[in-house]
Design a protein around this nucleic acid. Structure first.
Length: 759
DNA sequence: AAAACGCCGGTTTTT
DNA sequence: CCGGCGTTTT
């Protein structure tokens, strides 16, 4: 521990030792940026430059915080637990717990999740008599969220909306939303940071306390911070000016949720006398993999010049394979995993399959299950959005904070206890007229006069009050069991005795297990702490490295992680880059950065796959390989992949103008295949399709077009059974004349037509 | 009050 | 294709 600096390269050492003012560490993928950060903290403590509690260190996930804490503990003996180390949200909740009363909330505030938020917005729309179709709750939520990212309170939002009727309406909704939250003594996810900043701005003594307290502020993954996070750290660092941020603009992938890449691009201008140190040596990947990543990212116009290099060997070449459909793609992946496991000394946990959308995971899971390959799926797991889990957690939230109307409304008649819609509506309007919460209204028995369900309501009230009395006396897990028992929730499920109810019970017990786990790790476990932790937890936080299983997750979730072998599945235009991004350069660039992140997760071996035909959400589309594949030089692919590439190139060359028009007329014809499908799915519109071909002519590798013969019986998805009457070559494709039994004669292009050969 | 039905809409990524 | 939600039915 005397010479922790010896374990660093020159640049990292420089970054650790530089202590005078703002420091920007530009660190490419796998260059040991987290390592530099960790060692810097250890160094600060070891040299006794600051006390642990004077350090504020912000990570992107709770898991990263946990790991960093462990590593610091190993390096220095100081108590790393006293460091303020966590995500922006975790840190701000901690501050809010101390300071939120200044804004008129109490410490027992609840944190609303997305579902609660949407419910509240829908409530408000009803109250304001606005049409949900015109004011899509999801869109409103998004707008409010973006506004909060920029510290725009309803008044500010309104002032900017002037003249725009719709925005003015949204401003009105936002205003009511905010005041409703407060009445519920609840905050939403974005409030966690916004309210913290608001407290700082309104209370100079509070701000100055934290400004002086934190002598050093460190931020990891700085490229993914948003405006308000920037504001927060600017405020906090403005006294001591010791702000050290680490990031890589090439890995900025959260623009869609307000992350502002200019935070990192403009760091030097914003923080005077900032020092910049670049970490450019990659310790993770082979040269081939790094080459691929560099080539891809070089297609982005906006980036800070830096060249990532490695002393690692050249390594194996990249494997690229186009499969017929998503099932074959999954099978190809499992086969390769099996194969590599057999031939090399690898375990399942060395592998990761990364995809763009969670929707892709279903087929992968299916095949992994069938092939008996253990896997763990990160994210997409809707455990917490399951009804039974939401119900139980709503009970907990109501008990913790009885003013939470959203939670109360969810469970007041769950399980059924004869408190119907009319009664609830009456109670709600009484509560509103008296400006109290619904639970508060229930407490006054006079308010129940004339309600048929008054008796039931009183019983409910008593039950909740009893549970509130108990909440601080027993453990959270015990409270859960008590709720399940006293409410009759458990009994009802047991009586139902179906497969579904059994599943639900199982889920509930798993949730109780989560609480037990929490109690083990947290000495001072209170209900509030448990609920906060639940609200802040992310999917990656739960990765259990211990078990030997292949990791399946989105490319976003993979940020910051690394694996020996990585599969990138579904590398297709419209999927990745996503359909919604391909019309704008800026968003494509973000997709490209995501691709860069995905590639650089791999240490030794990279597989890229796509399916020529993919079914998602019920509709099947023919696909075009992702432009990102073209951006990787051919020579980086292995021999087996070359056929795939040659085939594609050949198609490209022969893809002449008249064929474009054929494709176009074919597509607009509504015959055969549904590449467009106007409003739905991941398919590609004719325009983007053609635009794409023009930008980067790509192949259409599809059916085994060579297999068709005149006289063959074939089956078409829409036209049914028919016989091929004529085949004519058309570039690399064939025109098939088919006489269908029920639809007459049609002329179809072989490459675009899904035909089943009947013989 | 609860179950059953049927329609519509959304389906990128998430601390 | 799925879930959510409003409507109708019992």
């Amino acid at each position: 521990m005397d010479n922790i600096l010896d374990e660093l390269n020159d640049k990292q050492k420089e970054a650790v030792e530089y202590l005078d003012g703002p420091l920007l560490i530009l660190a490419g993928a796998g260059s040991g940026k987290t390592r530099a950060l960790t060692y810097k903290i250890a160094y600060l403590l070891q040299k006794d430059i600051v006390k642990p509690y004077q350090i504020l260190a912000i990570t992107f996930t709770n898991k990263a915080a946990r790991e960093m804490k462990e590593r610091i503990l190993k390096l220095v003996k100081e108590d790393a637990n006293d460091i303020w180390l966590g995500t922006f949200h975790a840190i701000c909740v901690r501050i809010l717990k101390r300071e939120i009363e200044k804004l008129g909330y109490t410490r027992d505030f609840n944190i609303f999740d997305e579902q609660d938020k949407t419910k509240l917005i829908k409530d408000i729309l009803k109250r304001l008599d606005l049409d949900e179709k015109q004011y899509n709750p999801g869109y409103i939520a998004y707008e409010i969220s973006r506004a909060k990212d920029e510290m725009k309170l309803p008044e500010k939002y309104l002032s900017e909306a002037m003249g725009d009727y719709r925005k003015e309406k949204i401003a009105e909704i936002y205003k009511v939303y905010q005041s409703d939250l407060k009445k519920n003594n609840a905050i939403d996810f974005d409030d966690i940071i916004m309210l913290t900043v608001q407290i700082f701005l309104d209370n100079s003594e509070v701000l100055s306390y934290y400004q002086n307290k934190f002598k050093y502020i460190l931020v990891d993954e700085y490229q993914d911070t948003n405006k308000i996070q920037f504001l927060l750290i600017s405020l906090l660092s403005s006294v001591n000016k010791n702000i050290c941020v680490v990031g890589d603009e090439s890995q900025s992938i959260y623009g869609f949720r307000g992350a502002d890449i200019s935070n990192i691009l403009n760091f030097e201008e914003t923080f005077k006398n900032a020092k910049v140190i670049k970490l450019e040596e990659n310790y993770r990947s082979t040269k081939n993999i790094l080459d691929a990543a560099n080539n891809v990212i070089n297609n982005n116009k906006s980036k800070i010049e830096k060249k990532l290099w490695t002393q690692n060997g050249i390594g194996e070449k990249i494997n690229y394979k186009t499969l017929q459909n998503e099932y074959e793609e999954a099978e190809y992946i499992t086969e390769n995993i099996d194969d590599i496991c057999k031939k090399e000394k690898k375990t399942y946990s060395d592998f990761a399959v990364l995809f763009r959308t969670n929707a892709q995971s279903r087929v992968l899971e299916e095949v992994f299950l069938r092939e008996s390959i253990p896997y763990r799926l990160i994210g997409g797991l809707k455990f917490y959005s399951r009804k039974e889990i939401k119900d139980l957690s709503s009970y907990l939230k109501l008990i913790h904070n009885p003013n939470d109307n959203i939670s109360l409304k969810r469970i007041i008649n769950e399980p059924k206890r004869g408190i119907g819609e009319t009664a609830l509506q009456k109670l709600e309007s009484i509560a509103r007229s008296k400006d109290v919460s619904i639970f508060e209204a229930i407490k006054d028995t006079e308010n129940l006069n004339g309600l048929r369900s008054a008796g039931n309501i009183i019983q409910f009230r008593q039950m909740i009050c009893d549970l509130i009395d108990k909440k601080d006396k027993i453990k959270v897990s015990e409270l859960m069991l008590e709720i399940l028992d006293k409410t009759g929730y458990k009994n009802e499920l047991e009586m139902e005795n179906t497969k579904e109810s059994e599943d639900r019970l199982e889920n509930i017990m798993e949730y109780v297990g989560v609480a037990l786990e929490f109690e083990k790790e947290n000495a001072e476990n209170s209900l509030g702490e448990f609920l906060d932790a639940q609200a802040l937890i992310s999917d990656v936080d739960n990765i259990d490295e211990g078990q030997s299983a292949v990791t399946l997750m989105t490319m976003h979730s993979a940020k910051g992680l690394e694996f020996e072998v990585v599969f990138l599945a579904g590398m297709e235009e419209g999927l990745f880059p996503s359909k919604r991004s391909i019309d704008e350069d800026e968003t494509v660039e973000e997709e490209r950065r995501l691709c860069y992140v995905a590639i650089t997760r791999a240490k030794q071996k990279l597989f890229i796959t796509n399916a020529s035909k993919r079914t998602i959400y019920g509709s099947t589309t023919y696909t075009i390989p992702s432009r990102f594949i073209d951006e990787i030089p051919d020579e980086l692919f292995d021999e087996i992949s070359q056929d795939n590439i040659t085939l594609r190139k050949k198609k490209e060359k022969n893809f002449l103008d008249d064929e474009y028009s054929q494709v176009k007329s074919f597509l607009s014809n509504d015959e055969g295949f549904n590449i467009n499908s106007k409003s739905s799915s991941f398919g590609i519109s004719v325009d983007s399709f053609l635009k794409n071909i023009n930008i980067a002519p790509t192949k259409i590798t599809t059916n085994n077009i060579d297999l068709y013969e005149v006289g063959m019986s074939v089956k078409h998805k829409k036209f049914g059974v028919g016989k091929i009457t004529k085949i004519e070559a058309e570039g690399d494709d064939y025109k098939l004349d088919i006489s269908f039994e029920n639809y007459g004669n049609k002329r179809l292009m072989a490459a675009y037509t899904p035909l089943e050969i009947l013989k």
